[in-house]
């Protein structure tokens, strides 16, 4: 009973905090928007290279899922800074002397992170639509895309929250998050198809969870005729991606829960 209501109130609080710092929100969106506009211009002619991309696909259509997920995990990687702030400001202690449900503190935070990623993804999708992107699977597909990104974000939030709880340092969270973002992004199929990669990067990409999530989103956004050319299948990729995301989430959120229990004792 109090888990649901406490989670709700803490979720609303976290959302208010995000909405009242529009500058932060703006800058966290700036990078994916620059990527969207810049990369789709920069790489647009590669699409013509023989054999790399299936025919009839623009680079915008190819890269938008990658940029959506990049935004999802890079903003999730920063979510640990908020728990560091709660720890160091004394806000967590202030909550802990109330009868608040302990799990609600974490759950409210995670849900607001997921919600934020959905809002940001929607903004990116609108911008991509203006530039000519269209999801082949329609409105239902877009909802499913947002769900996948939200779950993907949740899994990555776990890593960030665990680092924040363990180190109690916002700089460390930022540092590790920033360090992870680019290798993970470029060594995945987010921006470049597997066929265009050197072998060793292709190997890493095949292990990279981001590739799986990207493949799932592509399965929903690209026309089904284009999927075989990229080595994708529908709906098989979505199912395996969800499995992959669930496995990551169990590990990262499990670690977070363990560390949080230790802090709360």
């Amino acid at each position: 009973m109090s888990l649901a209501s406490d989670t709700y109130f803490l979720f609303v609080r976290a959302l208010k905090k995000v909405m009242r710092n529009p500058i932060l929100l703006f800058f966290s969106l700036l990078q994916p928007i620059i990527f969207l506009v810049l990369f789709t211009q920069l790489f647009s002619r590669f699409v013509g290279a023989p054999g790399l991309f299936p025919p009839g696909i623009s680079y915008l259509e190819y890269a938008t899922p990658g940029i959506l997920l990049q935004n999802g995990f890079s903003s999730a990687l920063q979510s640990g800074t908020s728990i560091v702030d709660e720890l160091n400001s004394g806000m967590l202690e202030k909550m802990l002397v109330t009868p608040v449900n302990r799990s609600a503190i974490l759950l409210g935070r995670l849900l607001s992170d997921a919600f934020r990623v959905v809002v940001q993804s929607s903004i990116i999708l609108v911008l991509a639509y203006i530039l000519g992107f269209n999801a082949a699977s329609g409105a239902g597909g877009i909802i499913l895309i947002l769900v996948i990104i939200a779950f993907f974000g949740l899994a990555w939030s776990g890593i960030s929250l665990a680092i924040g709880l363990r180190t109690r340092s916002a700089e460390t969270v930022f540092g590790i998050g920033g360090f992870l973002t680019f290798p993970l992004l470029f060594m995945s199929t987010s921006l470049v198809p597997l066929k265009a990669m050197p072998d060793w990067i292709a190997t890493v990409s095949n292990l990279n969870p981001i590739s799986y999530a990207v493949n799932a989103v592509r399965g929903l956004s690209l026309p089904s005729s284009a999927l075989p050319g990229l080595g994708l299948s529908y709906p098989g990729d979505i199912i395996s991606a969800l499995g992959y995301i669930a496995a990551i989430a169990i590990i990262t959120l499990g670690a977070t829960l363990y560390l949080f229990r230790k802090v709360v004792k």
Binding site: S5, D6, F9, K17, E93, K94, M95, T98
Partner: peptide, 22 residues
């Protein structure tokens, strides 16, 4: 240490505290 949520109004800070006390 004085602990208030700087992003919430004074009233919202207090309402939240009340909500957490059911």
């Amino acid at each position: 240490e004085t602990v208030v949520d700087p992003d919430l109004t004074g009233r919202e800070n207090m309402m939240l505290e009340g909500h957490l006390h059911q």
